[in-house]
């Protein structure tokens, strides 16, 4: 009976058959389903697929991975939320859901889920077309101020990394530029290399190789210290120390389950993911790509999420980019 996964009726039928009690005793007794909210080949996908084999070893069951994309991840998130709260369906997600309510994308977000493990975070890198005259973040910002509304930034859509970082830079003074949305970091980088956009902010994982090959120019890392994978690129705080109050900031990748799954299942999952994300093969892969391994769960993860949401939502609100006031959503102002 327990080997069956129903799509809609599980919720109604499971208590009837006493399956919940049985499942809790020996979790997990069958394959799990991992729903990845971003497409195959993306950073969320790669991180998730890289950690899962190690987690499976610790868990003793397979996790069948499936990409359910669309709606900046809202489709996958909504799907997992519609599944029974038995711990058998996991959400492999990124940072985007924290902004769903502010941007009116969905009424669900990570507050309806419990973080099983925050796997890794990436550090935004500010890059420019290699023929542009700027060599530092300061030169870029001053050029934008001299030529308002002329310089093109490639973005990844509202709430994306490029959008938020440019808003954060804009919080320090006038910063009027053209923001051209592309389908993702890859297409954005392509446009930078072709000269169709002048600069953008990209995750360290996606851009490190392009910088190393000299195809694009890295102006700064959006961090308080340089990155091991890009040792010669100065931190953004070197030019603008006041940005430090917003850091650390950047995309992150993790695994969530529904909020009301049984405690026993949650503990099993948290432990399995902690072991899996500590596997040297995984950590090497992550740091090699310029990411920072987090491997956090529980209260620490909740704190990280709350702070990230508060900083980002209020920056968007101050820039007039939020569609719903974070105050009405009870998102506290960053302290």
């Amino acid at each position: 009976m327990m080997h069956r996964r129903t799509l809609l009726g599980g919720l109604a039928a499971a208590p009837l058959l006493g399956a919940t009690a049985a499942q809790a005793q020996a979790f997990p007794s069958r394959d799990l389903l991992g729903v990845i909210q971003w497409g195959a080949g993306g950073a969320t996908d790669v991180t998730g697929r890289a950690v899962t084999p190690h987690v499976e070893a610790a868990l003793g069951q397979k996790i069948v991975l499936q990409n359910r994309t669309g709606g900046t991840g809202a489709i996958g998130l909504t799907y997992v939320h519609g599944q029974p709260s038995d711990g058998y369906t996991l959400l492999y997600g990124a940072e985007n859901p924290l902004l769903y309510k502010v941007l009116n994308i969905s009424r669900l977000d990570y507050t309806d889920f419990t973080p099983i493990c925050l796997l890794a975070r990436s550090v935004p890198v500010i890059v420019a077309n290699k023929d542009k005259p700027w060599n530092t973040l300061k030169e870029l910002v001053e050029d934008v101020r001299r030529n308002p509304g002329r310089i093109r930034m490639a973005s990844t859509g509202p709430g994306g990394q490029a959008h938020v970082v440019s808003t954060m830079i804009g919080s320090m003074g006038p910063f009027r530029h053209i923001s051209v949305p592309f389908d993702g970091e890859g297409p954005g980088l392509t446009a930078i290399q072709g000269g169709h956009a002048d600069w953008m902010t990209v995750g360290s994982g996606a851009v490190a190789e392009h910088v190393r090959a000299g195809r694009v120019k890295a102006l700064a890392v959006f961090n308080e210290a340089p990155l091991p994978s890009l040792p010669n690129v100065p931190p953004a705080t070197a030019d603008y120390p006041e940005l430090a109050r917003l850091m650390p900031w950047g995309s992150f990748y993790g695994v969530w389950a529904k909020k009301d799954i049984p405690d026993a299942a949650r503990e099993k999952l948290v432990a399995a993911f902690r072991t899996g994300a500590a596997n040297p093969q995984f950590t090497q892969l992550m740091t090699g790509n310029g990411n920072v391994v987090m491997n956090t769960s529980g209260a620490e993860a909740e704190r990280f999420l709350a702070r990230w949401q508060s900083v980002t939502a209020w920056i968007l609100q101050e820039a007039g980019a939020a569609r719903t006031d974070p105050a009405t959503l009870n998102i506290p102002r960053p302290s």
Partner: peptide, 14 residues
């Protein structure tokens, strides 16, 4: 490209 990443290669211009 995702597969190359997972196998420890670095897809990119290099």
């Amino acid at each position: 490209i995702g597969a190359l990443f997972i196998h420890g290669l670095k897809p990119g211009p290099m």
